[in-house]
Each structure stands twice: as C-alpha cells, then as structure tokens.
Simulated scan of single mutants.
Amino acid sequence: MASAKGAREKKETMKTKTNLRPTSGSRSVKSASSLRSQLDVLSKENKELKSCLTKTEEQNLELKEKLRSLTYEIIDSSNKAEKQLEFDPNMDVVDIPLDELKSLIAMLSTSHTKAKSSLFETRIEEVETRITLLSGELGKLVKLKLKVQNGLQGIISCSDLEDAKKQARQLWIESCATDIFVEPVSEKKETPKHRDDVDNVRHPIIRNCRSASLPYAIAINLQKVEISPVSRKLPANTHITDMSENLTKLIVQELSLYKGSGADWRMLAKRVGIVDTMIKQWEAMKIAQPMKNVLCVWGESPGATVRMLHRHLISPQMRKVILAKRISDHYIVD
C-alpha cells in the first residue's frame, strides 16, 4: 500500500517538472526577438557611423584644400625669396614631406627676421647719426655762448671807448665765424702765370707712383700705407681725431676714391649729417681727398668715435668690410 502511494507521488512530481520546462518553440521565438533587437541596434549604430564617416571625409577634404592653399603660398614665398623647393611637379603639393615644408618655413622666417633686424639697424644708425649731428651743433652753440659771455665781460671792463669797440668787433667776428659745416681752410696756393701751370695745378701728376699717367686725385689715394700691428687694442670710444696717423690716412685714401655704388666719402658724409649742399660743393671743387673734409667736419662732434665709424663702415649700405677689419685690429669695437 505504501509502495503504491510512493509510486503515485513520483509520477505527480515528474509531471510537475515536465510542465515547468519550456518548449522548443517558445525558446526559438525568444532567441529570434533578441536577435532582431540586436540587429536593430547594430543597424542604428551603422547609420550613425556612416554619417560620422561622411562628415569626417568632408572635413578631411576641407583640411586638404586649406593645406594645399597654404603650401602654394609657402612655395610662392620661397620663389620670391629665390629659395626653390625641389619636388616632383606631378606630385600633389599636399604630398610634399612635412620636413621639407618645415625647413622652408624656417628659412623664410629667418630671412624675414634678418631683413627686419637690418631695417631696425638702419633706423638706429640714422637716429645715432642725428644725435651725433645735434650734439656737434650743441657743442658749437656752447662754445659761442662762452665766447659771447667772455667778450661782453671784456667790453664791460673796458675803460676806453675805442677798446670797447675793438673788443665788440672781435666778438662780432668770432660770432660770425661760428657756422654749420664750415669747409676746412686749405692752404693758399700761388696763382700760376701760364695756362700750362694752371693745368698742372688742377691735375698734377705724382711721379713716384707706380702708374705715372694717373691723375693726382687717383694716384694719391693709391699710395701704399704701412700699418704696423699693435700689442694691445685701444678702446672703441676713442675720438676719430685721436686715431693713429697711418690708419686715418688709409681710411682717407679708401673712401676718397669714387665708387659707382656711391659707397664712398659721399655716403659717409650723408650718414654723419653733412648737408647735401656741402657735399656737392666739395664734388664741384674736385678735391683730391674729400674724406679729410668729412673727418674734419664730423670731428667737431664729441660723438664721432671709432665705434661709430666702424658701424658706418659695416652697414649694409657701405659694406666696407676690409676697412672695418683694419679698425677692429686696432680697437675693441665688438
């Protein structure tokens, strides 16, 4: 009886478990729905990726166009600066290696910086020249003021009217003698009696020169100048009137010779502030060594130092490198 009851309970338990298990049909329906939902998600992500790819391609094309236009600008700038970029003409400019573009940009920026610094240097030299000119004029005015003061004091202390008139006249002469850019007084030469003598005075010939047929104005500036080396360099703030005699003579000879570019005594005279009328007057006089006049007039300024002379010689306009080297061998200009 008990065994039959146990067998019956087992059968009921087995039925219950069988009823709890899902059927194969329901399992396939669930898997299909999950796959459909996953497919929908993937399709949505695929659409988003396609739209993102389209936008990225459009942005890439825009960046390529910008890069192409910038590269063309760099190439045009390099051609204007006479710095050719070597690349295959059939190659798209976008495919030019980045290192070559970087080096080209560096060269262009360096040249631009040099040009800018050269412009600044030129302007600084112009300002220094004007300051030198003004300081020279100020020195002349101070001297004139002292002369007037001393002259007036002397006139006041005069007891005789004639002495006062003489001192007043002397003061007036000294005041009139103070002028701007006065040409150095040259020694008076005897007036020749015959026409041949006139020609000889205007264009004398140096007989001991290697080329005896050269005019005096050229031959005197071609004479050899011996400059002995120095054991110790002198300071660059030395005034030009205190330069060594032979070095001054060499500078006078080199710059007195006329150059087609104009980089001679005329350019230096303009740079130190000498007026054009005085320069043209010296040219008309056909002075053999007009650089002496330039040094004499400029030498009245306290700012006419060897350093300033050296700066003028190495300027981009004059480019007297060899002559500047001679100065740097004797003075500390660096």
Score class of each variant (00 low, 15 high):
Lys5Met: 13
Glu128Gln: 07
Glu45Val: 10
Ser37Thr: 11
Ala7Asp: 04
Leu247Ser: 06
Ala324Arg: 01
Thr132Tyr: 05
Val294Met: 01
Lys188Gly: 04
Thr305Trp: 04
Glu245Ala: 07
Pro229Ala: 04
Lys17Asp: 06
Leu234Asn: 14
Asp92Gln: 10
Val297Gly: 02
Ser186Gln: 10
Val94Tyr: 12
Lys145Tyr: 10
Leu146Cys: 12
Pro215Asp: 03
Val94Asp: 11
Leu234Tyr: 10
Leu323Trp: 04
His310Lys: 01
Leu222Asn: 14
Glu174Pro: 00
His194Ala: 12
Glu126Ser: 15
Asp329Thr: 11
Trp172His: 10
Glu128Lys: 05
Asn208Asp: 15
Glu126His: 15
Val275Glu: 04
Ser43His: 10
Lys143Gly: 14
Ala288Ser: 12
Val29Trp: 07
Ser77Asp: 14
His112Ala: 14
Glu254Phe: 14
Leu53Tyr: 09
Thr56Lys: 09
His312Ala: 10
Gln289Glu: 12
His312Tyr: 13
Asp95Gln: 15
Leu70Glu: 11
Leu108Lys: 03
Ser228Met: 14
Arg36Ser: 03
Ser261Arg: 07
Ser328Met: 08
Glu9Asn: 06
Glu45Pro: 07
His312Ser: 14
Arg130Asn: 15
Ser328Phe: 07
Lys15Pro: 09
Lys259Trp: 09
Met285Gly: 09
Val230Ile: 07
Gly154Glu: 03
Ile155Arg: 02
Lys17Arg: 06
Ser3Trp: 09
Val198Ser: 05
Arg210Gly: 08
Glu183Arg: 00
Thr56Val: 08
Asp276Cys: 05
Ala32Gln: 07
Leu234Arg: 15
Thr277Leu: 11
Val297Tyr: 01
Glu128Ile: 05
Leu134Phe: 08
Met267Ile: 07
Gly273Met: 00
Leu35Cys: 03
Met1Pro: 13
Ile314Tyr: 06
Asp242Arg: 13
Glu183Ser: 02
Gly25Asn: 07
Ala288Gln: 08
Leu171Arg: 00
Lys15Met: 13
Tyr72Leu: 11
Asn60Asp: 14
His239Ala: 06
Leu214Trp: 05
Cys209Ala: 10
Asn246Leu: 11
Pro184Gln: 00
Pro290Met: 04
Met318Asn: 05
Ile131Gln: 01
Thr248Arg: 13
Leu63Val: 11
Ser69Phe: 15
Pro192Leu: 00
Leu42Met: 03
Lys11Thr: 06
Pro89Tyr: 02
Asp99Asn: 05
Ala7Asn: 05
Ile205Ser: 10
Lys189Met: 00
Lys15Glu: 14
Asp95Met: 14
Phe181Gln: 09
Asn90Tyr: 11
Lys102Val: 14
